[in-house]
Design a protein around this nucleic acid. Structure first.
Length: 534
RNA sequence: GCCCUCGUAGCUCAGGGGAUAGAGCAUCGGCCUCCGAAGCCGUGCGCGCAGGUUCGAAUCCUGCCGAGGGCGCCA
């Protein structure tokens, strides 16, 4: 990539100017403003102090040296501001980008190898199987799935899991609530209620275990509504089966052997405070039952059978859980730098200008299903992925619905539809795209064309950052920028019109194809469809 | 009280220690004999407050203020 070539050239120049080692903060980056050139380096600024030189003087020497020993495509160098060295490149560097996009295609363009095939187990959603998944849970579905897609394109081998808490007090309450509703009785204290309980109770046959049936009913609903959001899991793991197969008994033995287990108040405790937790945690209650923690430890060990690195995506309401899991894994000699918990902030739903407080037990749910029915999967998914998971998200259902047609996802999809329409229109007019090898792309010099290529050129950097930060919203932003660049190009640079020069037309046809590739890659990473017409 | 996260434009949000902080929506205006107007172009002094680190801070650190979440032998 051009960026690496420039970086190497800068590092080489520095050493020739007597700067001994490459300074740690040295970067080659895209300036925020176009007038500062195509690329820029802070080399003089980060070197000046250690070298005992004036940054602007050093910058000038750097610019002089690089003017003498000019890297490919570089037309001019300038020193600006406190000592930035700015590169102005010929359009040929962007013509190379076009060739690269077309050569690598939808399958490989922007693909980078960060993971080196590392198997990553990523668990997300894992909502309790005691009712439909609410629209807040959809955020984790869209997020976890897109992180997996991004990591896959960055050389990791992700494995998506949903953990089923099909055991314990909540499931018993859920079953009892179904039974009560079926019999027309009032639900138990702290039980579940709401429309879905009545509906499901009505479906429930007489001769079934209400807990087991209810869990299956709930899981079927979860599977279906997540699939509507284009989220599909590789593995659904059952807590109950973990207990039934004795995995947690085995883990208890290992924990005891680790020397961090003790008995107190009739319960069995893990001294998680040895590993940074603020208090110790109960593994076996005084009534003999396991807490949620114990089978979950067994589950995390089990996950290491399907991955060498574990990611848990958790809502902010579970962040307090992380230290005890880390502690437990460390007590067993696992975890450490192979365990990562991502804490996402919760979703607030607004309807009619008021917050919709969601609770399965109270039964006032806005389900994923409702959201998808109202606005469609693409709008919902893009809305979830438009912002950082670190920020609390407010989804105004009225706004999403009424402004659905102005939703950014349509802006991007419309660009894709225009791409395909150009293909259809070219066929009608008998315009044939020649093989790329026979096409001269040098006529591409319009600012709109160059801007489009600049956006395409950024995919690799965006992908790397989105992957290491586990932040799909950077991909959302990139694909929006790409769509913007395409719409601008489309507006100002006709492709098929009679008055377009034949050579320019061929070059533009290939630029359109490169745009298609970029849009397809971006939308796929977000799990959003790329319709050819709208 | 302690812990985690977040305070950026009227609203919803981007912003990776860099140069004059950006989008969408909303407002007001301009552009279709021309590949789809779901588009393009214009219209905006806003980083909660106070210190600190740095050549340089929306970004890192400390404190304060405000919002959300957590602090169970629930899951």
């Amino acid at each position: 990539m051009i960026k690496d070539q420039l970086f190497d050239a800068v590092a080489d120049a520095l050493s020739n100017l007597g700067v001994d080692s490459v300074p740690s903060g040295l970067v080659v980056e895209r300036p925020a403003r176009r007038e500062h050139g195509d690329w820029s380096t802070n080399a003089a600024l980060v070197s000046a102090k250690a070298a005992g030189r004036n940054p602007r003087e050093l910058g000038q020497q750097l610019a002089d040296y690089l003017t003498e020993n000019r890297p490919a495509h570089v037309e001019a160098l300038e020193i600006a501001g406190p000592g930035f060295v700015n590169f102005r490149l010929a359009a040929t560097w962007l013509h190379d980008v076009l060739a690269e996009v077309l050569a690598e295609g939808e399958a490989d363009y922007g693909r980078i190898n960060l993971g080196d095939g590392l198997k990553v187990n990523i668990e997300f959603v894992s909502a309790n199987p005691t009712g439909p998944i609410h629209a807040g849970g959809g955020r984790w579905g869209a997020y976890g799935d897109s992180v997996a897609r991004i990591m896959a394109r960055c050389g990791y081998a992700p494995h998506k899991e949903f953990y089923i808490n099909d055991r314990g007090r909540q499931t018993q309450l859920f079953g009892a609530s179904l039974t009560a509703a079926k019999n027309g009785e009032s639900v138990p204290e702290d039980g579940y209620q709401g429309a879905y309980i009545d509906e499901w109770a009505a479906e429930m046959p007489d001769d079934v275990d209400p807990v087991a049936w209810g869990i299956e009913r709930s899981l079927a609903d979860a599977r279906e509504s997540l699939e509507q959001l284009n989220v599909v899991f590789d593995t659904w793991s059952s807590e109950k089966s973990m207990v039934d197969t004795g995995a947690e008994a085995a883990v208890m033995d290992r924990l005891r052997a680790s020397g961090h287990v003790y008995e107190a108040d009739g319960a069995t405790w893990l001294r998680t405070s040895d590993f940074g937790d603020d208090q110790d945690r109960v593994l076996i209650k005084s009534n003999g039952d396991y807490t949620y923690l114990t089978p979950d430890i067994a589950y995390h060990l089990d996950k290491y059978n399907r991955g060498d690195y574990i990611i848990d995506v958790l809502g902010a309401d579970h962040h307090g859980y992380v230290p005890r899991m880390k502690a437990a894994l460390e007590a067993l000699g696992s975890g450490g730098d192979t365990y990562e918990a991502i804490i996402g902030q919760n979703v607030k739903l607004m309807r009619g200008g008021e917050e919709v407080k969601m609770s399965k037990r109270a039964g006032n749910l806005v389900e994923i299903r409702d959201l998808v029915d109202e606005v469609g999967a693409d709008v919902a998914r893009f809305a979830y992925l438009l912002q950082s998971v670190d920020s609390p998200q407010t989804l105004d259902l009225d706004l999403l619905k009424t402004e659905a047609s102005e939703n950014p996802v349509f802006y991007v999809q419309y660009a894709n539809a225009r791409v395909h329409n150009i293909g259809i229109e070219a066929d009608k007019r008998g315009i044939v795209r020649k093989p790329f090898a026979d096409v001269d792309v040098s006529p591409l010099s319009h600012e709109r064309e160059l801007e489009l290529l600049r956006q395409l050129s950024a995919l690799g950097e965006v992908l790397e950052f989105a992957c290491t930060e586990r932040a799909p919203h950077h991909v959302s932003n990139w694909v929006r920028e790409l769509a913007r660049a395409f719409h601008g190009f489309y507006h100002d640079c006709p492709v098929l019109r009679d008055d377009v020069d034949a050579d320019l037309q061929q070059a533009r046809l290939w630029l359109v194809e490169a745009s298609r590739i970029g849009l397809a890659i971006g939308l796929d990473l977000l799990g959003v469809s790329a319709p050819e017409s709208m």
